[in-house]
Design a protein around this nucleic acid. Structure first.
Lengths: 202, 202
DNA sequence: ACCTGAACACCGTTCAAGT
DNA sequence: ACCTGAACACCGTTCAAGT
């Protein structure tokens, strides 16, 4: 079990522990399940200690959102910079993306939901280089595809945004049950990827 | 101003009035702004009266979501069944859809958000014929396009789902500020529509 | 940089009693 | 089919006082 620190009045790294534990709670029970009372009880700290590190619950949630966003980013990035062909990398990324959303619906919902007003520009905007290497890698992949005459010569940033939006839309509709094609959900992905690639072809 | 009913103990149609007023609150201030206390105060009814019509706040919200979904549906449906060409109808629908989302971000977020667990199958599933004429019309449009050799011969329901997901993804990312291409947001839509249509071409 | 413990305003929900 | 009014448990947030 966890050992106490030298003093009962000091937690090892409360700020990170709060974010980590909150992300766990989101993952299993959704963002609505986070209450500061339960969160601090689980960590064995006091409620008011939170306000040493975050000015409000919303600010804490923003940190949790950012942590979740980085998990998604780390899941998809490797597929974009592998040694596979352009089209294989594209497809593998898409499958990994949707798999993440289906496996972690609560985290995905939190990231792209809007229960907390975030300054996306500064946290988990997909264009933010610091947090979204994935988007940058996607842009690079599309540029490579354009150079190899696989993809149409369009603005690669707009192209990447369109791709992201399409895959995001699929993920979003699937995990929130707006579509019920469960029997042939793979057929939906197959059709979607093919249509996207055909639409962007040189 | 509003006249009282014959008896102060009977509201004209409290159930509908609650949903209507709640939808207004969502539209201007977002779903988070709805509290039963404020809602009933605005209508001049008592708090407990709500429970004559809804078993909980969540059940009320579900009715509000459904009402919002029908507004979206009524906005886009006319464009799908107009006298224009297949491609014009397709494009006009897409533009109307995104325009609705940009004009009513709070309503759009509520519809496709997940702050309240809904049984989508019974309320605002896009496949639900009762509430989503738009989706049915989109399927019909795609079938017409296939017959006229404009679109590829794919399962029209999967095709329609892919189209919906793409436009939904664009709307969603735009209103939540995950993308900041505000300067050329029209260019993004232009590229998206062209890519989608090209991807589905015969 | 934490702790305890109390307090505050706000929330959804319930209930007893009236009309 | 409503009303009033009180109560309940829960919430985020603040604060005074300690270590």
């Amino acid at each position: 079990m966890k050992k106490k620190d030298s003093s009962p009045y000091h937690h090892g790294n409360l700020k990170d522990a709060l974010v980590e534990e909150a992300l766990k709670m989101v993952k299993t029970d959704g963002i609505q399940s986070i209450t500061l009372r339960e969160l601090t009880t689980k960590l064995g700290s006091s409620r008011s200690a939170i306000y040493r590190h975050f000015s409000s619950k919303d600010e804490l949630i923003r940190a949790v959102i950012q942590a979740g966003f980085m998990q998604l980013d780390e899941t998809i990035s490797p597929f974009l910079i592998s040694n596979d062909t352009v089209l294989a990398r594209f497809r593998n990324m898409g499958e990994a993306y949707i798999a993440f959303a289906l496996t972690n619906p609560n985290i995905y919902r939190m990231i792209f939901g809007n229960e907390v007003q975030t300054q996306r520009e500064e946290s988990c905007d997909i264009h933010n280089e610091e947090n979204s290497g994935g988007f940058q890698h996607l842009v690079a992949l599309l540029i490579e595809g354009q150079e190899k005459k696989i993809f149409k010569d369009d603005d690669p940033i707009l192209q990447a945004t369109y791709v992201w939006a399409s895959i995001h839309g699929l993920s979003n509709l699937c995990i929130d049950g707006h579509i019920h094609v469960q029997d042939n959900i793979e057929a939906l992905f197959e059709l979607s990827f093919e249509t996207i690639i055909k639409g962007m072809k040189f």
